[in-house]
Every structure is written in structure tokens, then in C-alpha cells.
Design a protein around this nucleic acid. Structure first.
Length: 434
DNA sequence: CGAGATGATTGAAC
DNA sequence: GTTCAATCATCTCG
């Protein structure tokens, strides 16, 4: 109201006497010589009109309507109206023009990005968000985890639904209110000067107000997602020990590849499949195992012996089968009759372990190349295995020869730079069993 | 309930 | 990206 009254005062007191306004009013120029009486009369008219406008809000509705009608029908109305429009346009633009182009709110952008990343806003991807997908990848095939995962997804869907419902409500309310205000302004534009730009500006103000409300909604949605996520991650942290069978498979692989316990990606995948765990869990397990083994070799001695013996027996069976196969078929037939995927590589490492224990100069690389060598080694291993069962309590069959002085694995290639430790063509402990 | 075992996480190094 | 090392958090067992 201040703007309006100020403007009207300006109009009445100053501008009306000036040339620019006079021209803008499109009033017929006062005839020379009659300026005094006519000019006074017009000023009086204008003063009356302005007075009526100023006091219109103090009057009753009926009175106001009557006055409004009278004003609308007044002969000076179109002229005054255009002047007011012109002045308002100029003042309004000079005051607010600079504020029009405000940059996008970084906080709002951040919230939007986060909601999009969490799968709350944006297109629905079958109920799965990026976070849920990541969680799914991490949780793997465990049934408990999948329950937690579906629980997470259900809760996230709930949040998304609430968010969209609220957002829709806000948008609807915003549109309704905007339409209402626009209608009101259009209606008012018949009695007071309202330019389309002003309407536009008003719409902008309304939208800004509503978007600030929307930001609050987005903020609380983000908070809800964060809480849900932290709870879910906490739940994920609740670990379960791997099954006995899984641990056995992993240990078997570890001790049979003790010279280089870095399973390749393929081997990890296979182990993961065998143990019904994820590849990252396999990696975790091997990481933990290597560290803990290295830290306390003595403690793992017995375990190592146990698995070494076990592997030897398996290898013996596998090689025996291969030999039989070799005798009946072709002398170059590879060992295809192994019972497990890791049996052959296992036997390779096993042979190396045995050979080192006995100080033999047996080369592991020959195992893969020559079946006859395998037969020889087999005999050797079988003998050793027998010896092992007899002397379990006394001398240790297995010795941790694979660790070098620096605490690293002797045969290991630089693990940090090589994803899957590659080995020479004749190597006995290829991680990728075919 | 406490100690040890064990899977997961984190940060640094490469 | 992987691995190591330290650490956390939980499980298991006596």
C-alpha cells in the first residue's frame, strides 16, 4: 500500500504538473489564455479521483463498488490509468529489475541431486535406487541380507511415495494459488494499473515461496533417507560367520596356494559361487587371512598341515584318475578327471610344498607338462601323506616357506599392481583352473 | 560374561 | 583399481 500511495502522491503533487506526464496523459493541451480556470478545474477532477481511490479501502463494500463503478466511468480514467501504468512500470522495473535473475540455490541443487541419487526423485527404477543396488551388490546372495535389502527397498519406496504425494500437493496448491492470484490481479487491473510484467513477477514470488516449502520437504525427505540408510548399513554390519563348508573351501584354496595366495578375479568368482558369498567377501576373507596368517604363522601351522594333507589326498585321487585316463587313452591327455575345480592347481602347490619340505629339486612346472612326472610326484605325495597322519603331533609337515624375509609372499607378484597374479606358462599354481 | 575368532570397514600405499 | 594394516563390531565358545 505504501508504494501505491507514494505513487499517487507523486502523481498528484509533482508529475501531473510536469511535461512528460502531461504528454503521457494524452490530454488535449490547454488552450492558450484559458489555462488558469480549465487547469484548476482538471486538477480538481484529478484530485477528486485520487482522493476517491485513496479512501476506497475505508468504505463499505457497496459504497466501494459504487465508487468503483463511478471511477470506471469517469472520463479521466483511461488517461490516468495509462499514466499510472507507465510510472509503475518504470519504478517497478528499476527497483526489482536487479533481483529478477537469481542463481539456482546450491542447497536446492544438492538436495535434488541427492534425492535423484537415492532414487527418491526422478524416474522409478523398479523400486530400486542406486543405494539399494549398491547394497544389493554388497549383500550378495545371503538370504538374511536380501531380507534386509527388500526391507530397505520397501521403506525407501514408502518415503518416495510420501515425497511424491506431498510434492504433487504442493504443486497443485501452488498452481491453484497462482491462478487465483492471477485472476484477482486481472480483475484488479481494471481499476488499478497492473502490467503483465507485474503479474509475472507476482507469479514468480508465489513460485519462490512454494519452492522454499518444497525445499523443506526435500530436506526432510533427505533426512529420512539418511536415517534409513544408516540403519540399513548398521544392519549390514551385523555379520554372520560363513558356513563351515565355505570356510573349508576358502582355507583349502588358501593353503594350497600358500606360495601365492592371491586368487585371480575368476578364481574369486568361482570361490564366491562355491561358498555362496560375494566376490568382495572372498577378497575380504583372503585379505584377513593373509594378514592373520602372516602375523601368527605358528598358530596356523596345524591348520595348514591339515589342509595340505587334505589337498594332497584330493590331488592324489585326481592324478591317479588322470594317470588311469592317460594309460587307457592318450599319453598327452590333460587331467580332466579332477573332482573339483581347484584340484589341479592345488596339487601343483601341494607338490611344491612337499618338494620343499623334503629338499627335493622337483620342479612344479613339470607337473602340468608331464603326466609321468605327476605319477612320480603322486607316489611321493602319497608317501608323505601317510607320514603326515602318523606324525601329526610331532614334527610339522608343513613349513611356512612361502613368506620371504620382508614378510611378503615369495612367489607373489606385486599384488598392488597386478589384479590377477599372472604366472609363467609352466607354473603349477595357476589361479585360474580350467 | 569375557576372551578369542572372524567378517567388515577404513585409510594409506602403490 | 588392489592390497595391507589397523581397527571395529559382532559372533562363538568355555
Amino acid at each position: 500500500m505504501d508504494d501505491q500511495s507514494r505513487m499517487l502522491q507523486t502523481l498528484a503533487g509533482v508529475n501531473l504538473a510536469g511535461h512528460s506526464v502531461q504528454g503521457g496523459m494524452a490530454l488535449p493541451p490547454p488552450p492558450h489564455g484559458h489555462e488558469g480556470a480549465d487547469g484548476d478545474g482538471r486538477k480538481q477532477d484529478i484530485g477528486d479521483i485520487l482522493h476517491q481511490i485513496m479512501t476506497i479501502t475505508d468504505q463499505s463494500l457497496d459504497e466501494a463498488q459504487a465508487k468503483k463503478h463511478a471511477l470506471n466511468c469517469h472520463r479521466m480514467k483511461p488517461a490516468l490509468f495509462s499514466v499510472l501504468c507507465e510510472i509503475k512500470e518504470k519504478t517497478g522495473l528499476s527497483i526489482r529489475g536487479a533481483q529478477e535473475e537469481d542463481p539456482p540455490d546450491p542447497q536446492l541443487m544438492r538436495l535434488d541431486n541427492m534425492l535423484l541419487a537415492e532414487g527418491v526423485s526422478g524416474p522409478e527404477k523398479g523400486g530400486g535406487s542406486a543405494a539399494a543396488a549398491a547394497a544389493a551388490a554388497a549383500s550378495g546372495g545371503s538370504s538374511d541380507n536380501s531380507i534386509e535389502h527388500s526391507d530397505y527397498r520397501a521403506k525407501l519406496t514408502q518415503i518416495r511415495q510420501i515425497y511424491h504425494t506431498e510434492l504433487e500437493k504442493y504443486e497443485q496448491a501452488c498452481n491453484e494459488f497462482t491462478t487465483h492470484v492471477m485472476n484477482l490481479l486481472r480483475e484488479q487491473s481494471r481499476t488499478r494499473p497492473i502490467s503483465p510484467k507485474e503479474i509475472e513477477r507476482m507469479v514468480g514470488i508465489i513460485h519462490r515461496k512454494f519452492s522454499s516449502i518444497q525445499m523443506q520437504l526435500k530436506q526432510s525427505t533427505c533426512e529420512a533417507v539418511m536415517i534409513l540408510r544408516s540403519r540399513f548399513l548398521d544392519a549390514r554390519r551385523k555379520r554372520r560367520n560363513f558356513s563351515k563348508q565355505a570356510t573349508e573351501i576358502l582355507n583349502e584354496y588358501f593353503y594350497s596356494h600358500l606360495s601365492n595366495p592371491y586368487p585371480s578375479e575368476e578364481a574369486k568368482e568361482e570361490l564366491a559361487k562355491k561358498c555362496s558369498i560375494t566376490v568382495s567377501q572372498v577378497s575380504n576373507w583372503f585379505g584377513n587371512k593373509r594378514i592373520r596368517y602372516k602375523k601368527n604363522i605358528g598358530k596356523f601351522q596345524e591348520e595348514a598341515n591339515l589342509y595340505a594333507a587334505k589337498t594332497a589326498v584330493t590331488a592324489a585321487h585326481a592324478v591317479a584318475a588322470a594317470v588311469q585316463n592317460n594309460q587307457t587313452n592318450s599319453p598327452t591327455t590333460p587331467n580332466s578327471g579332477s573332482s573339483g575345480s581347484f584340484n589341479l592347481p592345488n596339487s601343483g602347490d601341494m607338490f611344491m610344498n612337499m618338494q620343499n619340505l623334503n629338499g627335493d629339486s622337483y620342479q612344479g612346472s613339470q607337473v602340468g607338462a608331464n603326466v609321468q612326472s605327476q605319477v612320480d610326484t603322486l607316489r611321493h605325495v602319497i608317501n608323505q601323506t601317510g607320514g603326515y597322519s602318523d606324525g601329526l603331533g610331532g614334527n610339522s609337515l608343513y613349513s611356512p616357506h612361502n613368506l620371504n624375509a620382508n614378510g611378503g609372499w615369495q612367489d607373489a607378484t606385486t599384488p598392488s599392481s597386478v589384479t590377477s597374479p599372472t604366472e609363467g606358462p609352466g607354473s603349477v599354481h595357476s589361479d585360474t583352473s580350467n
